[in-house]
């Protein structure tokens, strides 16, 4: 199908975009368009106004800043793959990027668009949560920051208000000596992940998170706490993974049942832990 009719605006500044958003309901932001455009074409979305933020300068910058990496919300996934600072400061993000769609969608798809779309299977949401990123939201009323771990409310639902624009995502840089792993399983490469796992180990601690399994990415707090500072020991890892997964509410989408999703999460968690924990 073709998109329904809408008014189109292409603001040149974030303030202008925020002003347009503040004018009322029925407006949506168009970032990379790799999720919104299919929804328009399928007429699952019928906005009064599409506010195209691709013309705003400075919204795609990547900057290193005092042990952090600040990524503009409009940074394209393909551009991030080519940015050396991403691989250096955030190896976990660098590992996740090639799993997102295909070269032909990563060329347009943005980090901010993916986070705001909040698909439960999204790789970028999982990495933002695992790496404890902080999101900057701007509206005509001002700016606020929200930790990624508090940003996702439910599938396709975030704390971003209708008049807010996500402008920047700030990641703490990976610790020195960190080991990262990212694994996902999808029916075909580029499809939505049935389950995905991101893990980062360093001598100071362990963070492991799972996406696709539930409505929002989950930081496996129990696993991360219990396994920090310990070597990989198969029996203990299996027991702790089962304890962690016992607390989850796996998605049921009519195609992939909760048991299969759980089993995949179990395997991927185990594989990632085997990869990052000391032997």
């Amino acid at each position: 199908m073709k998109p329904p009719s809408f008014a189109y605006a292409r603001p040149g500044t974030v303030a202008e975009a925020a002003g347009l958003l503040a004018q009322g309901d029925g407006a949506v932001l168009l970032a990379g368009g790799q999720s919104l455009m299919p929804m328009l074409n399928l007429r699952l979305a019928a906005p009064d106004t599409v506010i195209d933020i691709n013309g705003i300068a400075g919204l795609a910058d990547v900057r290193r800043d005092d042990g952090r990496l600040r990524i503009g919300a409009m940074a394209r996934q393909a551009a991030l793959m080519r940015t050396p600072a991403v691989g250096e400061a955030l190896p976990l993000l660098a590992l996740a990027l090639p799993h997102i769609g295909h070269p032909q969608t990563r060329s347009r798809g943005t980090i901010g668009g993916s986070l705001c779309h909040a698909d439960p299977a999204a790789e970028l949401a999982l990495v933002a949560v695992a790496a404890d990123a902080v999101l900057t939201l701007l509206s005509s009323a001002g700016t606020r920051t929200v930790p990624a771990r508090a940003f996702f409310l439910h599938a396709m639902e975030t704390v971003r208000a209708a008049d807010e624009i996500l402008t920047e995502i700030t990641f703490p840089a990976s610790r020195p000596g960190a080991r990262c792993a990212f694994r996902e399983l999808a029916r075909r490469h580029g499809d939505f992940a049935i389950a995905a796992v991101a893990a980062e180990w360093s001598p100071e601690g362990l963070t492991i998170a799972v996406g696709g399994l539930e409505a929002t990415p989950r930081v496996c707090a129990h696993l991360s706490r219990e396994l920090a500072g310990r070597p990989f020991e198969q029996a203990a890892v299996v027991r702790l993974i089962d304890e962690e997964l016992a607390q989850t509410e796996p998605l049921e989408d009519g195609v992939i049942g909760p048991d299969y999703r759980l089993q995949l999460a179990r395997v991927l968690l185990n594989d990632c832990l085997a990869e990052v924990l000391p032997p």
């Binding site: 455009m37 295909h102 032909q104 969608t105 060329s107 347009r108």
Partner: peptide, 22 residues
């Protein structure tokens, strides 16, 4: 819906789905 790739064109040197761009 951006899945099949038949509409891929080059926009400013990048391969892009032309069904996902206005």
């Amino acid at each position: 819906i951006g899945v099949c790739g038949a509409c891929t064109v080059i926009v400013d040197d990048e391969p892009v789905r032309s069904c996902l761009m206005l």
